[in-house]
Design a protein around this nucleic acid. Sequence first.
DNA 1: ATGAAAGCGCTAACAG
DNA 2: CTGTTAGCGCTTTCAT
Lengths: 354, 354
Amino acid sequence: MTAGTTQLHKDRTAMRVTISDVADALNLTKSTVSRAMNGYPDIAEATQLRVKRMAQEMNYQPLSHAQAIKTGRTRSLGLVLQLSDHDAHRPFLAEFLAGLSEGASIEGYTLTVASADSDQHVIESFRALLRDGKADGFILPRAMVDDPRVKLLRDADVPFVLFGRQQNPEGCSWFDIRGEDAMRDAVHHLAALDHQRIGFINGGTRYAYAGLRLQGYLDGMASDGLSVASELIVEDALTMADGACAAKKLLDAKPPPTAIICATDQVALGVYRAATERGQAIGRNLSVVGYDGIQEGAQAQPALTTFSVDNRVAGVRLATLLIRRIRGEPSENLRETAAAVFLDRGSTGPPMGE
Amino acid sequence: MTAGTTQLHKDRTAMRVTISDVADALNLTKSTVSRAMNGYPDIAEATQLRVKRMAQEMNYQPLSHAQAIKTGRTRSLGLVLQLSDHDAHRPFLAEFLAGLSEGASIEGYTLTVASADSDQHVIESFRALLRDGKADGFILPRAMVDDPRVKLLRDADVPFVLFGRQQNPEGCSWFDIRGEDAMRDAVHHLAALDHQRIGFINGGTRYAYAGLRLQGYLDGMASDGLSVASELIVEDALTMADGACAAKKLLDAKPPPTAIICATDQVALGVYRAATERGQAIGRNLSVVGYDGIQEGAQAQPALTTFSVDNRVAGVRLATLLIRRIRGEPSENLRETAAAVFLDRGSTGPPMGE
DNA sequence: ATGAAAGCGCTAACAG
DNA sequence: CTGTTAGCGCTTTCAT
């Protein structure tokens, strides 16, 4: 007569192993098992081990929503996607999700995804998810310079982590790519090829990365002794169309640039198109460098040099960080940045006679 | 003295409205309220209304994991993404997720996402999610012709819905796009432009759509009185590289095709690249039509004609279907198909003298 | 260091 | 039709 396994239940729940089963098997009480499993300090080392081994053996795992009813925590990470008009994150999504869910599942967590089409709606989603205890904390993709999500969650004292950096780091953990370095590297790369007039098309100014990347570009130009021409800089380009438009503007400049750096690959695609339409051959007449070169289309373009970012590991890191915060570990040292990898796809020097 | 709202709790749970609060407010018992909320037939119409109105008013919503502990259902839909080597679904993901989560949230459901890198791992994810009661049912993207997921879930008697069709419809609900029609339309479109030798590059043979789309192509050719040359058909192209490779093969054919239809936009991009490298001008020397033209890159290519599919509504539909199944409504009539919209981006007739 | 007992928010027999 | 009474699987005082 083994521990209550024989009973036939109609539910697909099919007689899960419960905490009582484990307790019975060890001649202990539920409460002892519970405390052992949760690593309470008032349980004998020996019992801790016995219990954990037995749990393993019986394939016992506490039911998250049974614990949630007391603890309020569900072992689930929340992610609210914002599909703005320019769905900038589209291409980066699959890998990012894979990383998040991988990082989560390692720690026995799960990923709950919602999506919204406006700032307002995003906030409402957070509220709903919290209210129903569907998420213990949140991953915030695309950190904004003045981020309403941060404000909300900080005030509500809910754990969260950012993909991107934040001015006021209070209560923030984050993971970010050093886009500023990437931009600086791009300048060096082009300068080394003898380019002098290098344009820059920046991404959405509301995002935290824009300021950083502009600074990187400026630093690069300065350190290479190149002069910065304000007519060669465009800010706030989000879509491919924005990129095309900006490219036209740059190419109309007094002497046009011989190379253009884009903060974003979407934008780079737009530049590529606009330039091609004007008869410029990318890789001959004009060099283009785009950041975040995950976009398939960007990789399909010959001679479009890109930076590449591993969004999968970003996801893993962010999940891990968030779980730590949920578990109440201190928020210091929970901030990481990582490099972007340069992918030279055959950019060249300026056209002769420049 | 209102119903136990004054108590101060440390939890962020911040004194949620419970079923007892509602019961007290109405001088009823929890059980009556519960049954009223769940629309049991043995409750007076009048009380049903009173309860529901009051619940609304007090902003009461049953805690899903509190009910789950009894019912086993969590009001959450599961989605396990498969990131195969060719991450074919990448571009379609964001909109699809948005649709799913929209459809889910309308009915008070939530979306739980996991991801896996092999068939084996996918199955394990299902098992884990089920075991922990994290999902009441599943959405199965990219229906395969012999789908291990279907087998598992059917056997375990777990509700699921497919994006794509299934041979044996037993226990299956699905939503699908009529790709076969799209392929037929593409043939007509090209035939009307006077193309005669029209090649076809099909997608992964393991997926259900491949058979259908091939048939659509063949039907189209037949109904336009064009002869099908086996050397102008390539099967099982998944990646951009596959597409490029297939394109080379087709372009080497005795008389090469003047137009190529691709079952997939990834593949179309590969064709585009390969053809361009061989000096063919798409839209002049060669016409290319790609299905699923969601890919940003595909839209960036001039003169690449595509079909477009609204993956957002697909998501909404699938979520709705799944919820119905979870609620135990009959599985008949839970199968839909929808059309793909043709986007002509300036394809032309065959080069003169053809 | 462990057990006994109470209770989380909800559903589900079983009475009446 | 509605109230009574048990739990569901787990955590958490409070004793011991």
